[in-house]
Design a protein around this nucleic acid. Structure first.
Lengths: 207, 207
DNA sequence: CCTTTTCTGCACTCGGGAGTGCAATACTGC
DNA sequence: GCAGTATTGCACTCCCGAGTGCAGAAAAGG
């Protein structure tokens, strides 16, 4: 069932998706012109319509491919998280998580999804189900284990995971949504460390 | 210097701003038609153009009036916060803060500002400077005092304020941005109480 | 080469939203 | 009731973006 695709198509598709991501991210759905995408990708507008039914279709494909990327990021973070076995590692895992989220591709994608959440609610669900949920599940699992092991005082692992996540990057996430830019790395790591420390103070086993 | 305004103008302006807020909030800047606003407000499109130079002008006026409202909310919260003198009051102040933010007018406004932050960065600054900053300053002040009084172990009052804010409503704020709806009150209060408790565990004076 | 498929350029239709002009009408203050 | 001003309805222009049709150029693949 191989049905090899013509290499020209593959190449065009790649260019189009990449440029579409850039332009949609910057201008939003309505603000984006397929002419812009055509110019940006060095491909004729007609070619776009040969590969995608309409603007809607292109947008969906673009976001889905961006979700794919965010997904891989999230999965890699989740894998790191699962490997943690000592509470001592929380600050460094916090730092990695915050950097991946705030300096990686997730932040712009989140912005765009918020912008278009009324028009494409299904894409929002898709994203949330795949990327942030993966990380939150991993964190929950980590805290559940830490609770069982007696290294942290955890009643509700899921709640602990949310507290952790928002302590270490809530403020920057919020700022990033408004400014549309990545916060400086130094700020990200500082916030992550301070947040992890606060988390440890809150969830440490009391004597 | 009163220059009394014709009551007809006042009435039209009010209707227009109210409907514009509704429609812009729902559809975004580009997605909104001045015909929609006209219909929604029961006013002729021509009247809108009599009172506002263009769509841009109307949008700015609309957002500024919404900021005005959010501003009053924030000021009232800030006043509450300043009055707190016992650490025992933190859970209840958390609850009020979370309800005002998540169930009030702030959430939709924040969404719209994120959506249009590239087009109207100055409005974003205006909002952030006035509404959330007022609350954060009040919280910082509260924690500075608590630190001085020895009832909490505070090193950086501003950081403590951020931790508090995101512990008690970070998760709901994030969800609300995506869903575009107010979270259920029960969830809001639960999250606020749990967050306040975690905050107290983290910032309690250690014996 | 030769065939097949894709890409391209360009001109085109269509729809719809921003913003205007104007004459008729409704309202307000006196 | 009168003068002055605001509102209305409606038709209209302008612009621009979505999407199409087609004929010719440009690759693939054998």
């Amino acid at each position: 069932m191989g049905e090899q695709e013509d290499p020209r198509v593959t190449r065009s598709r790649g260019r189009i998706l990449e440029s579409a991501r850039t332009v949609f991210l910057r201008e939003g759905y309505l603000g984006t012109t397929l002419d812009q995408v055509a110019v940006e990708s060095g491909v004729a507008k007609r070619t776009i319509y040969n590969l995608y039914a309409d603007k809607d279709d292109l947008f969906r494909a673009t976001i889905l491919s961006a979700i794919e990327i965010a997904d891989r990021f999230a999965a890699s973070i989740a894998a790191d998280v699962v490997e943690v076995d000592s509470v001592e590692d929380l600050p460094s895992i916090a730092e990695r998580l915050a950097e991946a989220t705030l300096l990686g591709p997730a932040l712009p994608l989140r912005r765009l999804l918020v912008m278009e959440s009324r028009r494409f609610p299904d894409l929002v669900s898709e994203y949330r189900r795949r990327a942030p949920e993966a990380v939150m599940s991993a964190l929950s699992e980590l805290f559940r284990r830490a609770g069982r092991a007696g290294s942290l005082d955890i009643r509700d692992p899921r709640l602990a995971a949310e507290h952790f996540a928002f302590l270490i990057m809530g403020a920057d996430l919020d700022r990033g949504m408004f400014t549309g830019q990545h916060p400086p790395r130094t700020a990200v790591t500082a916030l992550a460390r301070d947040g992890a420390e606060a988390f440890l103070r809150a969830y440490r086993v009391s004597d």
